[in-house]
Design a protein around this nucleic acid. Sequence first.
DNA 1: CGTTCATTTGAGTGAAGTCAAACCGAGTGG
DNA 2: CCACTCGGTTTGACTTCACTCAAATGAACG
Lengths: 230, 230
Amino acid sequence: MLGASQVIGANSHGAHIAASAASSSADTADRFERGTIRRIEAKEHVFCDGDPRTHVFRIEEGVIALSKLLGDGRRQIIEFAYPGDYIGLGTLREHIFDAQATCPAKVRCLSAAALEQEASRDAGLALRLYKAVSAELAAARSLLVSVGQQSAMERLAGFLLSLSARASDAEENVVKLPMRRSDIADLLGLTIETVSRTITKLRTMHVIDVVRGTEVHILDSDRLAELAGQ
Amino acid sequence: MLGASQVIGANSHGAHIAASAASSSADTADRFERGTIRRIEAKEHVFCDGDPRTHVFRIEEGVIALSKLLGDGRRQIIEFAYPGDYIGLGTLREHIFDAQATCPAKVRCLSAAALEQEASRDAGLALRLYKAVSAELAAARSLLVSVGQQSAMERLAGFLLSLSARASDAEENVVKLPMRRSDIADLLGLTIETVSRTITKLRTMHVIDVVRGTEVHILDSDRLAELAGQ
DNA sequence: CGTTCATTTGAGTGAAGTCAAACCGAGTGG
DNA sequence: CCACTCGGTTTGACTTCACTCAAATGAACG
């Protein structure tokens, strides 16, 4: 994918804690992969800003939006967490963001206390936590660059590219948008109307085609990469 | 400090790796606190985007700006690193940002390879790395909320408050600005002119006073907190 | 088939950007 | 000691991109 350094609101390859490839402590990782599954309806919260941080969650299905709500209703989405990603990592006693499903989802619940206690003994696990958070940090910084410096068109094009790079489920060049326009707007620091107008412009330019509003077909990925800027 | 959740371009309490309070492995931490000191001139780079990540640095004096440069010259500053902060953490083989001094500075150079090798054996050290990066992540997300949702006035007021909260050096209510207007602009996703105009407006409102352009006296911190929004 | 929620489209406004010039303080050298 | 330069900052005039308000359209579902 051209412009691979651009990852918007998503971790390059997900924030995986589970040991990759051969690891001496794959068993300890497994222990934390076996939590109870919780079903989340669209718009339901997994946790809220201020809640005690009792669990870490791994997304199994659907998409969870991490967001910060300002007093007057403005909202910034920090990241869309996809299957395989972890949310709720960190060291604070309480959550400092909302986590809300953008569509029906399933998450696996893992005890935060147990995880951290085990990590204080198992250097391998602690290192995997470190790497997972480092990946999230890179993603957050990438989004910051986009929101701070790029035009609406650049942000949207970059967003579509980052989704197409990550969501390797269906066919190449087809990107599902399992979230509302307002979610995309709040991720990119734009308004719903600007997101809609920009998508329309991409359609009239024949760079993308949109089916039922939720499925984007990338017709000209080179042009899309150009529009995304660097 | 009112609105304490707002931390702009700075880690709440710095990204400290060194063991806090009583720790069983204070000695291993110490081992990494003894690197050679390097003097950095204003505008000089500590490292560049793309350089191999051979060292981690701890700021001893001055301020280092972490930034991403876009192809056409646009720049987003990710964070200002102050004394006590670490830069260059992460798991990638190469740096993905520039690190540049905004004023004369000193950094301590620590071997990245040695640090990570030790961390793979010492869970305590690995956990401290985890916590340091988690703090950076929280700071990056906080800046993202600011840049994505707030007005120029809100961003600037928040920035001044976050600096006054962190730089506990001199008197209360006096904030040093050891960086150019262009650095502040690139942190907040604004232009030099907008930063300048907003500072002027704060002066005419008698919320702050500015001495020699680099020293901000906060005259009405309650009003400043109001202007910073939530 | 009407209600509801989400998206699109249109018209007008405004906050921040651009371009340009003036200002200011710190060095430097005549 | 003053004139000149130079980088940085401030201020002014004008423009523009994205926002706001408002209405129309479309999709989903009981």
